[in-house]
């Protein structure tokens, strides 16, 4: 168990290196420039350099800060995002913890990240941090609803909260294809809401650089700041993995119900490639958002949730329920 845990942590760190590198290369691609290419082959060691530098940087705590909470906050943020990784299935028969309430677990643990952010913003005793933390509180609490509702639509269809069963239920086709338009709506809502949930642009109001200089992490330096970056990338991976698992079948290859020969060919592609392919596709889409869209304003952000996403997902749940009862899906 300990070895598995250590391996998982090492995997997450390497994954974050890769995501950081990917983000900078994707940004460079969107911005018609080259991106890092001097450190290591094709610039691949850039993130390693950044991390080592942050490790050996002075990790100062401001004088006016609440020292205990200030130092505790980054750990809480990182721990919550790492906890969510536990029930994810990376490949066929490769799941660390197949908890029977997987979806519930994911949505409840991920909402705890707000505590760490609020703690960071409050304890910094910096007005920008405080505004950032308040924004994050409002934002995460609101968008949690839409995320939950869009996940529930699949729970209704598959009849289980367990991630492995949800994946199994997609053996004859992914939910996004089987579930008609309502599931596509859920998927879109999930992507929007989870982008907001992990504070990425266009919903990065909590760390809006042009407005709040750094938001809740304005006062953080060195390794403590690196932990916020780490948790940001883990969160990015987690929401993409969850979206891939719930809507796109996780490690399940692309199957079409009834076409056994075709399904058999698809099975030859290893399941881990299916999983990471889907996950990174979604990660790319979320990065694409970030480097394309301007940021929303706080009232627009809340309007979007409470006036559009929430009512739509509620109606959507009704549709999904009707669909499940009548057996209209494939």
């Amino acid at each position: 168990m300990v070895i598995t845990g250590v391996c998982l942590l090492a995997f997450l760190v390497v994954l974050c290196f890769f995501l950081g590198y990917m983000e900078r290369k994707v940004a460079a691609f969107m911005e018609i420039r080259l991106g890092p290419n001097r450190v290591g082959p094709k610039g691949s060691m850039q993130i390693v350099a950044d991390t080592v530098k942050l490790l050996f940087k002075e990790g100062l705590t401001p004088d006016g800060a609440d020292k205990f909470l200030f130092n505790l906050a980054p750990f809480i943020v990182v721990i919550t995002s790492m906890l969510v990784v536990a029930p994810i299935a990376y490949a066929r028969d490769f799941q660390l913890w197949d908890i029977n309430i997987g979806v519930l677990y994911v949505s409840s643990i991920s909402s705890m990240a707000v505590i760490g952010i609020l703690m960071a913003g409050w304890s910094s005793s910096n007005k920008y941090s405080l505004i950032g933390a308040m924004r994050s509180g409002a934002q995460i609490v609101s968008y949690e609803l839409s995320i939950g509702l869009s996940l529930i639509s699949i729970v209704i269809l598959s009849g289980s909260l367990q991630l492995s069963e949800i994946i199994e239920s997609q053996a004859n086709g992914w939910w996004i294809f089987k579930g008609h338009i309502p599931v596509i709506i859920s998927f879109v809502i999930f992507i929007i809401a989870s982008t907001a949930e992990i504070n990425r642009a266009p919903f990065d109001l909590t760390e809006a650089e042009q407005e709040l200089t750094g938001g809740f992490h304005t006062e953080y330096a060195g390794m403590k700041f690196a932990m916020f970056l780490l948790s940001e990338y883990i969160n990015l991976f987690v929401v993409s993995a969850i979206a891939a698992t719930i809507f796109l079948g996780g490690w399940m290859p692309f199957h079409i119900g009834g076409l056994d020969a075709f399904n058999h060919i698809m099975d030859y592609i290893p399941s881990s490639i299916w999983f990471f392919g889907k996950t990174f596709l979604i990660i790319f889409i979320i990065m694409w958002f970030r480097w394309t869209f301007p940021r929303l304003r706080i009232d627009q952000l809340l309007n979007l949730e409470w006036k559009y996403l929430l009512p739509i997902s509620m109606v959507n749940i009704l549709l999904v329920t009707a669909m499940a009862i009548m057996g209209w899906h494939f």
């Binding site: 450190v39 940087k57 100062l60």
Partner: peptide, 23 residues
């Protein structure tokens, strides 16, 4: 910082607004 000179090649492009995170 722009595409013509592109200091991101050297890894300088992470311009921080907060002095705490800048080197």
């Amino acid at each position: 910082a722009d595409a013509k000179y592109d200091w991101s090649r050297f890894g300088f492009e992470v311009a921080r607004a907060s002095p705490r995170q800048a080197d």
